[in-house]
């Protein structure tokens, strides 16, 4: 008994060390998403390139895709464009959700859609265009409903319009395989439930 008591501080020390050691490798930005396996929130937002065309969650239903939150102001998003374009060439569907930063009217900043369209077109021509289309979220309403904390963030949406994964940070060749496995699983699931026909239909409908 006395010997056992002697080991208690030692055991406590080992447990504390293990706890703190595991903390060294945890990412403080990843704290789970509240929206997993919930439907994409309802929205009605314009297409960035054709603002007269309003997009809604129903427009995107029926196909599996990645919803990528990005903005020209965000260097990591720009760095990610090249790899995302490669993914599009491999047949991954990617929809952009354009994150407009708040404008400070005190400094005379106003939202200029024409200038933004020009800058985006130029950037995508230079770096490659991974997007089937871009949703323009000027007031960050859908971005807020999705629980986005910054850019880039990427959601995996299944054929039923449900959110299946929420990735914070950029997608790169190192972390893509894990997300790719989830993407393939969701695509197979969609084909198994007979939504496969809709999948290709959705792809051809998208500009």
């Amino acid at each position: 008994m006395r010997k056992l008591m002697f080991f208690i501080p030692f055991v406590l020390f080992i447990a504390l060390s293990a706890f703190l050691f595991s903390g060294l490798f945890s990412d403080p930005r990843q704290h789970g998403s509240a929206l997993l396996s919930k439907p994409l929130p309802a929205f009605s937002l314009p297409d960035l390139m054709e603002p007269q065309r309003m997009l809604s969650a129903d427009h995107l239903k029926g196909k599996v895709y990645l919803l990528n939150v990005w903005g020209l102001w965000c260097p990591t998003c720009n760095a990610e464009l090249g790899f995302l374009t490669e993914l599009r060439q491999q047949g991954i569907e990617i929809v952009g959700l354009y994150y407009v930063q708040p404008q400070d009217s005190a400094f005379g900043e106003t939202f200029d859609l024409a200038a933004l369209q020009q800058d985006v077109a130029k950037k995508l021509a230079e770096q490659g265009n991974p997007y089937q289309l871009n949703i323009l979220d000027e007031k960050r309403s859908l971005i807020f409903d999705l629980g986005v904390t910054g850019a880039p963030e990427t959601f995996l949406i299944d054929a039923q319009g449900q959110i299946r994964a929420h990735h914070v940070g950029d997608i790169n060749p190192q972390n893509w395989p894990a997300l790719a496995a989830q993407y393939q699983a969701v695509v197979q699931e969609a084909q198994a439930t007979g939504a496969g026909g809709q999948q290709s239909e959705g792809a051809t409908n998208a500009p």
């Binding site: 704290h31 789970g32 998403s33 509240a34 929206l35 807020f144 409903d145 999705l146 629980g147 904390t149």
Partner: peptide, 8 residues
């Protein structure tokens, strides 16, 4: 807020 950003 919790519905969007979780218990965090």
């Amino acid at each position: 807020m919790k519905q969007r950003y979780g218990d965090f």
